[in-house]
Write a protein that binds this DNA or RNA. Structure first.
Lengths: 220, 220
DNA sequence: GAGGTTAGTGTCAGCTGCTGACAGTTGACA
DNA sequence: TGTCAACTGTCAGCAGCTGACACTAACCTC
């Protein structure tokens, strides 16, 4: 992420980008995404509007850029899982690992707490949620390719990797949604939810719910 | 959908809305969504731009409105499934039933062929795909509520309905994506894909792929 | 069937997101 | 030190979208 060319120019560039990002997220999370104009952001950083659009393709991208970082980290984690793990094992461990290391990866750019508030903002802002879901769909395909490769399968001839990953990421997204509706914005909260929902994916798909116990979960 | 107040006023209203919709979809599918301006649409129908925005909240809504109709039909079908069917049985039958009856439901508004082209347009246009995914997420929650009600469960205390539905709709979305990348735009094609992928959801989640046969499916 | 009411439309003015073009400035590097 | 390239600012302009208000045509009542 951070260019190491270490010129004074690169430094300043990084600074303005960070400043823009921080100002944007701060404004978004305090007064709302739609209510915040690009002019307000650039005024806060004292650059021109044109500069904003040189760093971010659009307003959305600013709101989602940290999220992208987190997704990249998840992918990286998945790539490093040992191949003898089963697909779901590898996925589970990657998800949890990326939640655990979220702090170090993000803190360099913005406070984790701001990131969590932004996450919730995304879930509650239709335009941002839409864009986020589209990114997730792209991520899904990459994950499917990875999983298929692990198992020595071809995504185009064997539908199972894509199906499994689609089901899995469906549950992950749902977890994020439920978390966003709740009160507890901490990393621990979403981590816990993740464990709960991913852990129950087996029983949920087994059917026959009426005769088996309902695993407890606190309401939204 | 159609107001039955049968005044001359309502009639004209319906006409302009249909004309706007048809013109919009025709232009979108022939020259692209982003490349089509609202002015072009309103020029084709000979109304003012302002009128367009009285019928559709935004450009997106015009592109997605028929899709919404299809989703409503799926929901209606699901509501009418007999309660003794298992969740997945009810879901499967509803999906297939709504594909079968797509013709009659849509044809009143636009040609089915145009609808299919629009569907593919949505899958291949980032902005539309994003909005579509957001709608799907809303639909997902409704479906989860329905399924939970069928089984006499509460969505907030038993995570299984939401998990199952999330996994299921994840696979459904993936099916739409794969279809959109293919050549065959027919209803039959997507129906067949749906059967294939939904049918393999069990084996896919069972794990242990390396030792079991790969169900054949033709590539994208 | 005249007259008032109301729904639907057009016009206009204006904001916001976003882009291309061009000029100015400042760091990099010989 | 001077040249080049990168980054930024300014300006002009388009497209999406909205509020306000005036106008027209369908509706309803007497």
């Amino acid at each position: 992420m951070q260019k190491v060319r270490t010129g004074l120019r690169e430094l300043k560039k990084q600074r303005t980008r960070d400043a823009l990002l921080r100002a944007a997220l701060e404004l978004f999370t305090t007064q709302g995404y739609e209510q915040t104009t690009v002019d307000e952001i650039t005024d806060a950083v004292e650059v021109s509007q044109r500069t904003f659009f040189r760093y971010f393709a659009n307003k959305e991208e600013a709101a989602l850029s940290v999220q992208l970082l987190a997704e990249a980290q998840f992918l990286a984690a998945l790539r490093e899982r040992p191949p003898e793990e089963s697909p779901f094992e590898a996925l589970n461990r990657s998800v949890l690992a990326s939640w655990d290391s979220i702090g170090e990866a993000i803190e360099a750019v913005i406070p984790v707490e701001l990131h969590m508030r932004t996450y919730q903002l995304i879930e509650s802002t239709p335009a941002l949620l839409a864009a986020h879901l589209r990114h997730s769909a792209e991520l899904e395909e990459e994950v499917a390719q990875l999983i298929a490769a692990r198992e020595g399968l071809d995504v185009n001839t064997d539908p199972r990797p894509r199906i499994a990953v689609a089901a899995y990421t469906g549950v992950m997204r749902m977890t994020g949604r439920i978390w966003g509706q709740g009160q507890d914005l901490s990393v621990d909260a979403i981590r816990e939810l993740t464990v709960t929902y991913l852990g129950h994916i087996g029983p949920a798909l087994a059917g026959n719910w009426r005769n088996s116990p309902a695993p407890g979960v606190r309401g939204a």
